[in-house]
């Protein structure tokens, strides 16, 4: 696998989009979190809302892992774009065929893309940890790994997004079209998820059947729903109306879809004409 990754590195290292998106991603994670931090600092200091918030600081070590994981999730669209471009380019320029002709197996071809998607998720997670640590250090609070499991959820979310990107790329094969379908799908799933969530509340109220929030059982929303902004005085809603949060069920569903996307991508590459 290391040899296969070296081949991917030869393709990547001179690819301008890789460099540009990579830089934007790293800066993006830092800047987004820094902006959230600044907004909160200003609020606490000067506004009336700050009084309400009291001592709540999203970037102290108690909350930082959750805040950074949640906030950085929005930047994951960048590695997704890059992955779609990398995989669909192989089809556009028929280099996938050339790789196979030169002696790569079809299985190696898809597996190394999946490993690349995993590696992107690992690197994203590492930057989240670094950013979280750096910003939390500025708050002067005591180091803590409280809520560090949120970083794990961020990793799961990154894996879900990236595997979905690889699956769409091998399914659609055209760069622009795949990116378009990705956005449309994400919007559609979010709308459906919200409708399902409302429906879940209705089911709970009407029949006392507590199925959890059905919206979070959808492929992308499963890992999305694991991440949220830390609890704070602003978020004091009437919790009892919400269905129970079946945490482990949601994690299992997210993992199930990750495996499904891999299996489908692999099946397409192994059985179809290239």
């Amino acid at each position: 696998m290391l040899e296969l990754l070296k081949i991917e590195w030869l393709k990547l290292k001179n690819y301008k989009a890789f460099l540009i998106i990579g830089i934007f991603f790293i800066i993006g994670i830092f800047v987004t979190n820094y902006m959230v931090l600044t907004v909160f600092n200003k609020m606490v200091d000067k506004t009336e809302a700050g009084m309400l918030l009291g001592k709540f600081m999203p970037y102290d070590f108690k909350h930082v892992w959750q805040t950074t994981s949640y906030t950085s999730g929005y930047i994951l669209i960048l590695p997704v774009m890059l992955l779609i471009m990398l995989v669909t380019n192989e089809f556009t320029y028929k280099t996938n065929r050339q790789n196979i002709i030169d002696g790569l197996s079809r299985l190696d071809f898809i597996n190394v893309k999946i490993v690349l998607a995993t590696l992107f998720a690992v690197i994203s997670t590492i930057f989240v940890v670094i950013t979280g640590f750096a910003l939390a250090s500025t708050t002067g609070t005591e180091f803590s790994l409280h809520g560090f499991s949120q970083v794990g959820y961020f990793f799961l979310k990154a894996i879900s997004y990236n595997f979905f990107a690889v699956f769409l790329s091998v399914l659609i094969k055209r760069t622009g079209f795949a990116i378009g379908v990705y956005f449309i799908y994400m919007s559609a799933e979010n709308i459906i998820a919200q409708l399902l969530d409302v429906w879940s509340m209705k089911i709970k109220a009407d029949s006392k059947l507590d199925l959890g929030s059905l919206g979070s059982y959808l492929p992308m929303n499963a890992s999305d729903s694991l991440l949220s902004f830390p609890e704070n005085p602003f978020k004091s809603m009437a919790k009892s109306a919400f269905p129970t949060d079946y945490h482990y069920l949601t994690i299992s569903i997210a993992v199930f879809f990750v495996v499904l996307f891999y299996w489908l991508s692999r099946r397409i590459i192994l059985t179809k004409d290239l």
Binding site: I7, L10, K11, N89, Y93, T95, Q98, N99
Partner: peptide, 15 residues
């Protein structure tokens, strides 16, 4: 079929 942004040498390295 080659990577359009890579040179002859870089493409042959991959092959």
């Amino acid at each position: 079929n080659f990577y359009h942004y890579l040179s002859a040498v870089q493409n042959l390295k991959i092959a």
